[in-house]
Design a protein around this nucleic acid. Structure first.
Lengths: 286, 286
DNA sequence: ATTGATTTGGAATATATATTCCAATACTAT
DNA sequence: ATAGTATTGGAATATATATTCCAAATCAAT
């Protein structure tokens, strides 16, 4: 049965690896470890790099049900076609040249979805796995979590409040109800965690809350637009997100995605096992 | 001076675009917008897709200093070689750094970003442009806008409140302060618009607010998970969004993206011209 | 309208690439 | 050790692809 996707091909590689001949094993290892080359190089180049003869490569492809090398290569090309975005793609320039006069809403939607997909790409590659681990560890060890984000960051803080609340994680939103953000910040205790979401131009209110938390011995987790944000020195961990910016308007999709990841990762860490069933039940009315 | 990287090539494209002949302009636009194809396809395939003759493509490459198409194509291949990694490769890397079994935060991040990118893809294709136009028109004509979303939808309603507020658009959030959502809903006037964001299992509170608005002669704009949601009959316009769902957890990125699109489209409709400069100034502290 | 310059697209040509076939080599079972 | 089977690599062949050349078409200036 010939694999139809790169993912299926990887499955078959894993399953059939033991039964392959010596040379075909070598090809399999190269194929598994070099998807770019598999898509971009010629059969002769690949064979040379893998240390085998071109006809061995063709026989490898035939073994898995492909009619030849070209058909195998197509799997790799398709994956790139679907998932690769060139970071330098300048959506803004392109759209400006097209967008004279009236701008239609669906044209805007197109621009925004494209830009946000690029931004999500960057997010996945740009976040240091160790910082992420650190962040989740911090949350896991905290007696109590406080979350603060104002202006454009406010929806993100509300998402944290929603998601963590649903996990029976103690989470307090510093939401400025009755302009009482200072009173809310004064509830932060030693060893608590403050999640502070902050973007340029950096809010003085958020900075003030960070200072309070820091002074009270809490750990600060920063989600920020840049590493060099004003409160960086006070943070235990900084996760930087560059959300999409289209026609001068900044999005929130990547930050929301990161927020969700943090919450769910924390859930996994605290309640290994029946966790997903709990989530299914906990999809609250909205 | 022949460009050595894809980024340099883009610079040259921007600089020299105006001075190109008609056909070479067309090639330039295709080259700029289709880096995957430029790397993966043959000269003949690319020429066909771009609507030009293969020799035009070669002349294009020559114009920018390349000896031929193959040399130009190499820029695109090099970029993929450097920046693309497929899902299976990323999983391998993460497992290597972390070991088996436990779900790592960065693995989760990868899953979420992938799923959300797909969801954004579907959003762009799934929204009927006429419904979108209708929605923006509705907002444009409204004396006043009210926005309501509870639970997971609350961050979206707060985003509307933030964005519209910054455009000097009169927007009232029905946020349940002091459990006073009914009092807030009673401020809805005839011909106002209620934006209601609601997902399954559908909130009775949101439905009740929709009913109130409808009874008071307001227009209801629904952003919902399905067309067949309970309050559909009361809506002037329905925009449906299927947000990503990963391991039973639902995201919000596509809904946020749609919200942003609606707000910005409204801005464009109301203030053609110096609108983007206004937006740049209006990036508030967060 | 005419002329000169530039661009274009088609066809021929040169080059590259994938595939097929088979003799030589290696492996396995008796 | 021998025979049968499987694998390999090389060369020939078939196919695909990039490049070059040039007549026709288009454009711009007078």
């Amino acid at each position: 049965m010939r694999p139809a996707t790169l993912e299926q091909m990887r499955d078959q590689l894993a399953k059939q690896h033991g039964a392959l001949s010596r040379r075909l094993k070598e090809v399999g290892e190269y194929v598994d470890g070099n998807p770019q080359s598999m898509a971009l190089d010629t059969a002769a180049e690949i064979a040379k790099k893998a240390g085998v003869h071109p006809s061995t490569l063709v026989r490898f492809a035939n073994h898995f049900g492909f009619s030849g090398f070209t058909e195998l290569q197509k799997l790799f090309k398709d994956d790139i076609q679907r998932n690769y975005s060139d970071y330098g793609q300048r959506i803004q320039r392109q759209q400006r040249s097209r967008g004279e006069g009236a701008v239609s809403p669906s044209q805007l939607l197109d621009e925004f979805t494209r830009a946000n997909r690029l931004s999500l790409n960057k997010l996945s590659d740009g976040i240091d796995p160790q910082q992420l681990d650190l962040a989740v560890g911090l949350l896991d060890r905290s007696p109590s979590i406080h979350v603060c984000g104002v202006g454009r960051a406010f929806p993100v803080s509300m998402y944290f409040a929603y998601a963590l609340g649903h996990m029976q994680v103690q989470c307090h939103a510093i939401n400025g109800l009755g302009m009482m953000q200072d009173a809310q910040a004064n509830c932060i205790a030693r060893n608590d965690v403050l999640i502070a979401i902050t973007f340029s131009p950096y809010s003085e209110i958020t900075q003030s809350i960070i200072n309070t938390a820091f002074d009270r011995g809490a750990k600060v987790m920063l989600i920020a637009g840049e590493e060099s944000c004003p409160s960086a020195a006070k943070a235990e961990v900084i996760l930087t997100v560059k959300d999409a910016e289209v026609r001068s308007f900044r999005s929130l999709t990547s930050t929301m995605c990161l927020a969700q990841t943090l919450c769910i990762a924390l859930g996994y860490r605290r309640q290994a096992g029946a966790w997903e069933d709990t989530a299914r039940q906990a999809n609250s009315a909205a």
